[in-house]
Nucleic acid binder design. Sequence first.
DNA 1: TATTGTTATACTCTATAACTATA
DNA 2: TATAGTTATAGAGTATAACAATA
Lengths: 140, 140
Amino acid sequence: MQDPLTQLPGYVLRRASAAALARLNERLAPLGLRHIDVALMLLVEATPGLTPSRAGRVLDIQRANMVPLVARLESRSLMARQRVDGRSHALRLTAEGRSRLSRARAVVAHCEAALLRPVPVKLRPHVLPILMALWNPQDE
Amino acid sequence: MQDPLTQLPGYVLRRASAAALARLNERLAPLGLRHIDVALMLLVEATPGLTPSRAGRVLDIQRANMVPLVARLESRSLMARQRVDGRSHALRLTAEGRSRLSRARAVVAHCEAALLRPVPVKLRPHVLPILMALWNPQDE
DNA sequence: TATTGTTATACTCTATAACTATA
DNA sequence: TATAGTTATAGAGTATAACAATA
């Protein structure tokens, strides 16, 4: 018998994603971070002053779910909130946050490299374009 | 500002997977099925008599989590369990399960097609090989 | 009116530990 | 001793509704 699911790109996409995520989280755990923390920190580093709402829109995280995420990073002194408005907060990394992120970035780079390693060298340039295309499907 | 995360295959992999899964579940909902139900049904169809334990190993689902999954399909008369052993159960699709699965398969085919549509035709043959490679990463 | 941050809440998915009965 | 099925449970992750304060 042969597993019929491995013929379905969508299924393999899910399995590959779940496996990669699990390994990344495993390697980030010693830093006290999860993948989602690093995603937000990378985004805030690239866009200082970003608000939680806007960050949530970029990361596809609901406003309500940003609250515990930001609070957790703030409570660990990795991120700081600053009122910019009567209702908006500007997010910035603290010095400790930047230093933690540089270590996390090394972990991410390691995992990204491990992810690509089994892809034949000739196909590697196609990986990101293909994944970007899969991210943006057209329903008819 | 540019989103630094879209340069990371691992991140795009996750976003693509989550988006594809959400759309699939949305389209399966009218059939009363979720993606995981269809995955199990496809597997059991291809391997009649499979036990929940073995199915779980193929699908990467814990033994304990197979229980409510199989129970739900059984309670809807889509799948049947048969004792084969003092401790093992053989899983099979019922006639209703097969008919429901044929409708689900059409939904899956539609979603898979929508997933691949934005990929340039020349790159499409590389999609599955690349995803299979990403699924099986080598850590060093 | 629309948006931000927030609380509360519920639901799915997943992981672990422990138990029984069988092989 | 190892495996199958099961129960109970806890933790992520995610989604929705509602509210106050502000734009």
